[in-house]
Simulated scan of single mutants.
Amino acid sequence: MKATQVLPPKINALEELFQVRKPIIGVIHLQALPGAPRYQGQPMRDIYAAAVADARTLSAGGIDGIIIENASDMPFRRPENIGPETVAALTAACLEVRGAVDTPIGITCVANGVVPALAVAKAVGARWVRANQWVNAYVANEGFLNGPAPEAMRYRSAIGATDVRIFADVHVKFGAHAITADRSIPEQATDAEWFDADVLIATGTRTGSPTEPREVQEVKSGTTLPVIVGSGLNPDQVPSLFEVADGAIIGQWLKRDGVWWNPVDPARVERLVAAVSRLRSGG
């Protein structure tokens, strides 16, 4: 049963941002940035050039949006420990991408650095940020994490970034859900909407792992917000997942050989966009 509307209705953020039905958002997984253990001192221009190359491939292939993520900064720091070197490099990378393509961009700053992501978004003109954990709390790889919504929403207001939308995961991947195990997925979706998210994300258990249509439907049953797939989409799954989902973020499958740290593969982008185009046209 659909959640009862308990808040003033919002505009549909997906329609506002992308102006297309069932938008597809491609991921740029940045190479390791300064301060991260895997950064080996390579010139920053090379890191930015790789990001720009991926952005151009995604944009030329018809992807509707691009989200930029410091995905190679493992092991990820807790949100309160994300340093200025990460924010500076992520900002510079986003500016390079913005200068190369017209496709709308968003930001993920891991692990769950929603406040830093909002700062970057304001600086570069990004349209949304992804919060891997928005409400409640769970045990992540980085330890016990609280949802940042109260602080993040006040920070967003303070820096004049209320036009930056919040894409929030529900039933977070890469973590244990023992703390919220007594709360259903629909209840957690309602919590995320109550704490003012704009788009909810149903995701798998790890990067690239499939998201089941049942999980998408469970999230949708607890919210009036758009719900998108956050992991594991490929062309064969488009019909089943897009029967219930309002769009998708896709990263790993679009990379050469399906490996997330490889460059974006233009042939894979073409295959995915073709599958989505057939669905949009009723095929």
Rank of each mutant, 00 (worst) to 15 (best):
P84M: 15
T108F: 09
V120P: 01
R156T: 04
D46Y: 11
E85S: 15
L200T: 01
A119Y: 03
I24Y: 03
A189W: 00
Q133R: 11
A275P: 01
Q217F: 06
M1K: 07
P213V: 06
P235N: 06
T207P: 09
N112C: 11
A100S: 14
D236V: 08
T224S: 13
P116D: 11
Q19D: 14
R256G: 09
T91C: 12
W253Q: 04
N136A: 15
S281W: 11
F242G: 00
R154Y: 08
A121H: 00
P150W: 13
V227D: 00
Q42V: 12
A93N: 05
G283P: 06
A158F: 11
V124C: 06
A111V: 08
P8Q: 02
A176S: 15
V87E: 06
R156C: 06
R278Q: 10
A137D: 11
G62F: 09
R21S: 15
G99D: 10
V259K: 14
G283H: 14
I201H: 00
Q252W: 07
S240F: 12
W260K: 10
I28V: 10
R280S: 09
P266L: 04
Q217G: 05
A36E: 08
Q133L: 12
M44Y: 13
S240D: 13
R154H: 13
T224G: 09
W260N: 10
Y39W: 15
N112L: 06
P37H: 15
K2E: 08
W134L: 06
L279G: 08
T4Q: 10
I201K: 00
P239Q: 08
A13V: 04
A248F: 03
K10N: 01
D265L: 03
F167D: 00
P84D: 14
G61M: 03
I107A: 03
A126V: 08
V199W: 01
R45C: 11
K22L: 14
V273N: 03
P266D: 04
V170T: 03
S157L: 10
L225F: 04
I250N: 01
M153G: 07
G247L: 03
A245T: 04
V27L: 13
P79D: 08
D46F: 11
A121D: 01
R278T: 08
S221D: 04
R165W: 04
N146M: 14
W128T: 01
M153T: 10
E243F: 08
V52R: 02
P148H: 11
G113N: 07
G35V: 09
G258Y: 13
G247I: 02
E69C: 11
T224F: 04
D102W: 10
A119G: 13
A55E: 03
I250S: 04
A71R: 10
L279T: 08
V170R: 01
L254G: 02
P150T: 10
